[in-house]
Every structure is written in structure tokens, then in C-alpha cells.
Design a protein around this nucleic acid. Structure first.
Lengths: 224, 224
DNA sequence: GTCTATAGGGGGATAGAC
DNA sequence: GTCTATCCCCCTATAGAC
């Protein structure tokens, strides 16, 4: 009630830096990196244009910062869940579904709030986005989860060779990325019957689909 | 004798219009729509800048033309293959793997030549791309295959309800799109062990993965 | 730290000669 | 149909006042 500022709107203003990150995140996820100008970002954040060059050096560095802020905590959750399911397995077999869930659940849970949904879309889109800065940053930050999860999948699918495993992980990442990036499209097509806001239901569906795919055996791998 | 830095559009004198389409296709697939300027395209095509505005009205119309040229023939092949496998089934059950193959094979076969690979990447990327012109054109042109394939899947998976089917088709499109758009990434990660140039092998793998996923039953009870 | 103002470069699109 | 030349817009980044 003390706040009586000059101009309009909701002024218990977060730090400028965070306002820029929030706006950039939302706009990048909606329009892509190239199509989003710094002017649009600073207008949405209601900060000055020059602020983005003061707090971040350049647009590329802003893109990097947007990813860095989110991926760290996300991957920490994934690794914690993975550790939990490996501990539960002990020396016995690792449950495939649990490994998949450990990887998918944290990023799908983002969908619970609108800002998180933007993050999800952004990640999903980045897998297919050619933008240099985004791609490099994203994959650099994803390396830390790549190795332990590959190892966990190997334990959950004993007897599967390396090449088969990599292909299946690739397919599985596609399922996740496309679900994150293009889910509103599905909502429209289905006339609202398929709703990504139902996180638990979506999670059950996606885990079941991926698990079955990873267990599948290609029928005829050597054709004439 | 100016060397283009992207792909040689070296048909010694193909029509200007086609040279522009070829160059645009390759560049869009590598860098995205927003990041590719008309100047870059006309330089690669070794034609004049103004030619693109003469043959196509605008950049958006050029994007639409790039898609229109490829999607028509592609969908025709898909529908022919689908008809063949429905005819083979007669009144009996439809083989799920054949329906999947009818949809995936034509687009995967594009990978056999470099220009086709660009088309594949372009399609894969478009599923996640926010660009307005590309997205609308692409989905408009895909509508003609959407209905018959949905119907075929319903026949191949009797007893599956509409919502489950739509989710599974959504996941499956993700597998295909990601394979098309991000396969060279897999090639790098695997140290060349996974090679998308092996079209037949990739096709067997992807069909097996998707078929298993579509047959999967979500186990909604095992959440902790 | 935050603003105004502007530099400096590309971008899409068009006019008009040939 | 194809070229040159150009208009006018929007972009990123920076300089310098407050």
C-alpha cells in the first residue's frame, strides 16, 4: 500500500535483470530467437532498451543466460530422481519406467505455471532450432545429465547394444521435445480432449509410450 | 565461377525460379527462416536480388512456395502406400507396422540425396518452428493426409479410444520430426555408429519403436 | 544503475532502365 | 525477365547525461 509510483501497472517491481530474463524467456518461446528483438523484450519487461546491454553483454549472452538460469535446477532434480531410483534398485535390476520418469517428470512439471510452460516450449523448440547461441548453450548444459542417464538405461535394458540404445534414446528425446514444443497444437486438434495441463496423465502416457518403444525389437534389421 | 558457401546449385542453367527455390530450401533448413535473408538466398542461387520479388511476391510467399513444391508429391506417395496396405488388408485387420511405414518411409527416403536431406530437416524443424508463414502452410498441406491416416490407425488399433490415439499419434510425429531434424546430432554423439544415411536400417528401427509405443498401455497405478 | 540519443549496419521491397 | 540503384524501416550496440 506504500507503493504509489509514477506510471501504471503492477509495481512491486522485480529486479530489472530478472524482468528481462522473464520477458525474454516468454517471447523466445513464442516467436523464436531471431524473430524476437531486444526492443520487444525490453518493452514487455517495461525496462529501458539499454538495460539489456548493461546486464548482459549482447543478445547472444542474454540467450545463454535464459537457458543457464533454468537448466541447472532442472537437471539437479533429474539427477536426484535418478539417484533415488538407482538406490532403490540396489544391485538388482533397474526399473526402466522409473528412469524415464526421472528424466521427463521435472521438465513436464514446469507446465503447471504459465512461465514454466514457456520454459518447456523453449526447451522443446531448441532441439530443432538452428540458432547458434541457443543450441550450443543448451547442449553444453545437457551434457551433465547425458552420461548418467545413458548408464542407467544400459542397466535397465541389459543386453541391448550401444547403437540400439543410442537410437532409442534419440527417438525418446523426440517424443519429449515434441510434446513440450507442440502440445497446444494437439489441444486444438483434439478439440480440447487432449490437455497437456493434465500433467500426471500426460506423464503416464509418455512414460508408457517411451518404455514400450525402448523395449521394442526391430523386426528385420538386415534387408536385402 | 563463384563458389556458393552452402550447396552448389550447379545446374548450369536451371530456371531462375527453381534456382531460388533450391537455394532457399537448403538455407532455410540450415539456419531457419528468420535468420536467412533474401540476399543470402539470391547470392547462393547466383541470381539477382530482385528476382525473388519478381517470381514470388514476398519472402513469406517464397517460404510457402518452398513447402508447396515438396509436400504435394510426398503426400501422394504416402496415400498410395496407405491405399496399398489397406487393400492388402481387405476386410481383415490392418497391419500397424505397414501404416506407420507408409507415413514415414517417403519422408525418410528423401535423405538419400543432399537436397532431399535438406527437405527432411526443413520438415522436421517446422514442427517446432514458430515462424508464422511456414507453420500455417505446412499444416494446411498436411491436412490431406491427417484424416485418412487417423482412420487407418483406428483400424489397426481396434478398441483404442480417440484420446489415446491422438496422444500416441502426437508422440509418434515427435519421433519422426526429431529424427529428421536432429539426426546429424546423433551421428556426432555416437561417433558415427548411428548413421541416418542407412535409410533402411533407420526405417526398421523407427517403425518398430513407434509401433511398440502405439500398442503400449499406460499403467496409471504405479506412481510413487 | 538507469535513461536518451544515435551510430552503424542489414533487412525487405520497389522503381525503372535494359 | 533480368538488372542497378535506392527507399525506408528496424535492428544491435554504444556513448554519455543524469
Amino acid at each position: 500500500m506504500i507503493e504509489s509510483n509514477v506510471s501504471d501497472v503492477n509495481d512491486s517491481r522485480a529486479p530489472t535483470k530478472d524482468r528481462i530474463l522473464d520477458a525474454a524467456e516468454a517471447l523466445f518461446s513464442e516467436r523464436g530467437f531471431e524473430a524476437t528483438s531486444l526492443r520487444t523484450i525490453t518493452a514487455a519487461a517495461e525496462v529501458n532498451l539499454a538495460a539489456v546491454n548493461y546486464h548482459f553483454h549482447s543478445k547472444d549472452d542474454l540467450i545463454r543466460a535464459v537457458f543457464a538460469r533454468r537448466i541447472g535446477p532442472l537437471n539437479q532434480k533429474r539427477l536426484e530422481s535418478l539417484k533415488a531410483c538407482l538406490d532403490a534398485a540396489g544391485d538388482g535390476p533397474v526399473a526402466l519406467e522409473n528412469v524415464i520418469r526421472a528424466f521427463v517428470e521435472p521438465v513436464l512439471l514446469l507446465r503447471r505455471d504459465p512461465q514454466g510452460a514457456a520454459v518447456g516450449r523453449l526447451f522443446g523448440r531448441t532441439y530443432a532450432d538452428p540458432s547458434g547461441a541457443a543450441r550450443r548453450t543448451f547442449f553444453d548444459l545437457m551434457k551433465e545429465v547425458g552420461r548418467p542417464f545413458t548408464e542407467a538405461f544400459r542397466r535397465a535394458l541389459p543386453g541391448l547394444n550401444q547403437v540400439d540404445l543410442l537410437w532409442k534414446m534419440h527417438f525418446s528425446i523426440g517424443v519429449m521435445a515434441h510434446t513440450l514444443a507442440g502440445a497446444e497444437h494437439l489441444t486444438v486438434i483434439s478439440g480440447g480432449l487432449c490437455d497437456l495441463a493434465d500433467v500426471e496423465g500426460t506423464l503416464d502416457r509418455i512414460v508408457a509410450y517411451i518404455a514400450a518403444g525402448m523395449r521394442a525389437t526391430p523386426a528385420k534389421l538386415n534387408r536385402s
